[in-house]
Design a protein around this nucleic acid. Structure first.
Lengths: 114, 114
DNA sequence: TTTATGTGATACTAAATGGTATTATGTCAA
DNA sequence: TTGACATAATACCATTTAGTATCACATAAA
């Protein structure tokens, strides 16, 4: 069965939640650490975290009296792939990714980039 | 200035609107043609079209008594790129695109893969 | 000109969203 | 054990959202 895109795109519809995802992409954080970054109450941030968890975009683990929120990036892949369908309409569609791939290839050949 | 992601991700948060975008990716359609594909009133579909237009995701042109809605795929690119940041967490992240690029490279070197 | 058609605009409703404030609960530390 | 701390849960509120129904308007067709 195909992954359910709806909760993922729903979660991405809010800028606070997108920011949280980027933050958790750097490192796992407690609820307090996340909410310290925003000008809103901890309860409000917590609700965003619940939505992200419901959509499977983050993993939540209770450790003692604090809970660690960590990114589950795999859940974003289907949304990325969905948007990738429109790739056919973009001129420079492979530009950014091609750079990364060429780097891999040059690594294979032993070239040095430092 | 960076493109404003918010109206784009907002628009993508609804399944009807995502379906409309895919449909318009096939061909431009009038309001009636679009709403015929959904089990809701024309007014409801029209509101979705307005949101898509507000976010710059479609182009709307009045021709006589009908209005042609066409995809503006370029507006989706920033959302795709935003999600592409998480690319670093995906294992098979470049698989599909890498095939296409390797074909380009082999074309450059004159290799033949047929 | 009349009539039918495609659309836009408005008012309305129920439910979801994004936020606050408050209270309760479990856990670490002195 | 007491107190501070991190979090969870709940109730509440204003706004937005997603839908309906209805009416007005411009345009194509008879």
């Amino acid at each position: 069965m195909p992954p359910n895109l709806q909760p993922v795109f729903r979660a991405l519809g809010d800028p606070t939640r997108r920011d949280i995802l980027r933050m958790l992409g750097q490192e796992p954080m407690t609820v307090a650490q996340v909410s310290d970054q925003f000008d809103m109450t901890r309860a409000a941030v917590k609700k965003h975290l619940v939505m992200l968890s419901d959509g499977g975009l983050i993993h939540v683990e209770r450790r003692g009296r604090e809970t660690i929120n960590s990114l589950n990036a795999a859940a974003l892949k289907p949304a990325f792939d969905w948007l990738g369908w429109f790739d056919q309409f973009w001129e420079d569609r492979l530009a950014a990714l091609q750079i990364a791939i060429e780097k891999d290839i040059s690594n294979d050949t032993g070239h040095n980039h430092d």
